[in-house]
Every structure is written in structure tokens, then in C-alpha cells.
Amino acid sequence: MPDTLTPACAATRDWVEGFVVAHNVCPFARRELVAESIRFVEVSAAQWEPALQALVVECRRLDASAAIETTLLVLRSGLEDFDDYLDFLAVAEALLVEQGYEGTYQLASFHPDYCFDGAEQDDPANFTNRSPWPMLHLLREAGLEHALTHYPDPEAIPERNIERMRQLGSERLAAELAALRPPRRD
């Protein structure tokens, strides 16, 4: 998108390109990155209400602009603890339903300490959802459905990603993620 990116958003864009696309974690990310149809927005999450309002504003922006396929809300300050982030995510998902966006948009979740339920913290598979900062990925359901219908064996994507992350190993993945995140300013 033509907007000037904050340092956190620029680092997030670098993560999308240098990690997500480079490791093909999302086989659809490259197309959207090249098309510049990903919007990057930095939001303070120190107080939940304004952060949740920003989520609704981004839904409305997607409603109004077909040129934006997806938005990454970079949640700066306030959700560093993964459990707090999960609580916030649950409220955000409920808000999308309350606002009538169920079936229109969905949220994908990313956090620096992401850990799948039942997984060990050091399992490399967790890196499929680890990011420089806590974030919400707001996706158009229609765009996702379209992409999945034109991708061979989309059900295999998660298993392929897990296998790839485990091949690379936690140490290498942690170093790659750390290199993409500039020093904290808060």
C-alpha cells in the first residue's frame, strides 16, 4: 500500500517477505505482497477498546476498498503476554460476529511467543504463527475461498508448514525472527 509505514509495520512487511514468503508459510502471500494489496497498520493495544475500534475501522476500510485484500494489525505495547493476547483475540473474534462480519472477514493470529494448544513452547511448528509483534491478520473470506479453490491440496498446507519448520529447527527460526525485528522503542 502507498501509506508510509511505521518502523513496526516496515519490520512486519519485511517479516512477510523474508519469513512468510521465503519459507512459503502462506502460499498466497507473495501474490498479495507483489500486488501491494496488504495493508499494514500499527495499533497500540495498551487499552483494548481503542485497539478493538481500530479493528472495526479496518473492516470498514476493507468494505470500502477492493484494492486491499488483507490487513495486518500490528499490536504494539499491551499484549506481550501470550495469554493476554489470546484473551484479546477471543474478544476481537466476538466483535467481528457482533458487527456482522462473520463470514465476511476472519482473523488469523500471530504472536512472538505463539504456542499451539498442546504443543511444547520450543516446538518449531509454533513458528508458523510467530511474528515480530502480536498481530491480527484480517482476511477477506471470499478472497481466501477463491485462493484455496485454485490451490492444489490446500488441506496439506498446515502439515507441510509444520514439517518445514521442524526441518529448519527452533534455533534457526528464532534467529531469523529476531533479525527481522528492530530494537524495541517502547
Score class of each variant (00 low, 15 high):
Ala66Asn: 12
Ala66His: 08
Ala67Asp: 15
Ala67Arg: 14
Ile68Thr: 14
Ile68Asn: 04
Ile68Val: 15
Glu69His: 12
Glu69Val: 03
Glu69Trp: 01
Thr70Phe: 04
Thr70Tyr: 07
Thr71Ser: 13
Thr71Phe: 01
Thr71Gly: 00
Thr71Pro: 03
Leu72Tyr: 04
Leu73Gly: 05
Val74Met: 09
Leu75Ala: 06
Arg76Phe: 00
Ser77Trp: 03
Leu79Val: 03
Glu80Phe: 00
Phe82Asp: 02
Phe82Gln: 13
Phe82Gly: 04
Phe82Thr: 00
Phe82Leu: 15
Asp83Ala: 15
Asp83Ser: 14
Asp83Lys: 11
Asp84Trp: 11
Tyr85Phe: 15
Tyr85Gln: 09
Tyr85Val: 08
Tyr85Trp: 07
Asp87Ile: 02
Asp87Pro: 00
Asp87Gln: 13
Asp87Cys: 09
Phe88His: 08
Ala90Cys: 07
Ala90Gly: 14
Ala90Glu: 15
Val91Ile: 13
Glu93Gly: 07
Glu93Ala: 08
Ala94Gly: 15
Ala94Trp: 05
Ala94Leu: 10
Leu95Glu: 12
Leu96His: 04
Leu96Ile: 07
Leu96Thr: 02
Leu96Pro: 07
Leu96Arg: 06
Val97His: 11
Val97Phe: 10
Val97Trp: 04
Val97Asp: 13
Val97Ile: 14
Glu98Ile: 01
Gln99Thr: 00
Gln99Trp: 01
Gly100Trp: 02
Gly100Asp: 05
Gly100Ala: 04
Tyr101Thr: 04
Glu102Gly: 09
Gly103Val: 09
Gly103Pro: 05
Gly103Gln: 07
Thr104Pro: 00
Thr104Arg: 15
Tyr105Gln: 05
